[in-house]
Simulated scan of single mutants.
Amino acid sequence: MGRFTGHDVQFFTSDADQVRAVAHFVQEGVAASHTCIVVSTPERRKQITEELRSRGIDVTSLIARYQYIELDARTLLSSFLIDDRCDREHFHRMLDTLMRQASSRGAPVRAYGEMVSLLIEDGLPETAIELEELWNELTRQQELMLFCGYSASAAAAPVCSSRVRERICALHSHA
């Protein structure tokens, strides 16, 4: 059997589309008994939870079974950013620990993240690209299905030029 890995990206035109796409990604994972991680803003996590519940998914039960893990994107980002740049050692220390914990159920891990989107919104496209490269390093070390979402506001940000988008898309297995 091949490795369970992938690094997908999507640029969204609306918050509603983003929430539906993330809920679908999580719903597929739940159906396959994967451990699902959502790293997003508090408001987006709330919207995703509401969408999952509207699809009949018992989010509270998933959290209790450690099959669904919610993390704050800004908090996690602050754990490995130094002077607006990614610190490779801190990133791997934090994320390796998280992935080991998430995979402790013995199931594949799939993660959705919008830290890169926040970096674009903050005017830090080079840091977002660094972070995408670090995620690629992690997917080579861990079995992980990763889905990066760029919000409508990030996609419309002046720093998210066509050249930046091309560079971001080139770092993913599917765009």
Rank of each mutant, 00 (worst) to 15 (best):
Q47S: 13
I48V: 15
T49G: 03
T49D: 05
T49I: 12
E50I: 07
E50H: 12
E51Y: 01
E51W: 01
E51S: 06
L52Q: 07
R53S: 01
S54N: 05
S54V: 02
G56P: 05
G56H: 00
I57Q: 02
I57S: 03
I57G: 04
D58M: 01
D58T: 08
V59G: 02
V59C: 09
V59K: 01
T60V: 13
T60E: 15
T60L: 09
T60Q: 13
A64W: 09
R65G: 04
Y66Q: 15
Y66K: 15
Q67I: 04
Q67A: 09
Y68M: 15
Y68H: 11
Y68V: 06
Y68L: 15
I69M: 07
I69R: 08
I69H: 03
E70N: 02
A73Y: 02
A73D: 11
A73L: 07
R74W: 12
L76E: 03
S78H: 12
S78W: 08
S78V: 09
F80N: 03
F80C: 04
L81H: 04
L81N: 04
L81A: 03
L81S: 04
L81P: 05
I82G: 09
I82T: 14
I82D: 13
D83S: 15
D83L: 12
D83H: 14
D84H: 13
D84K: 13
D84Q: 14
D84G: 02
R85S: 15
R85F: 10
R85I: 13
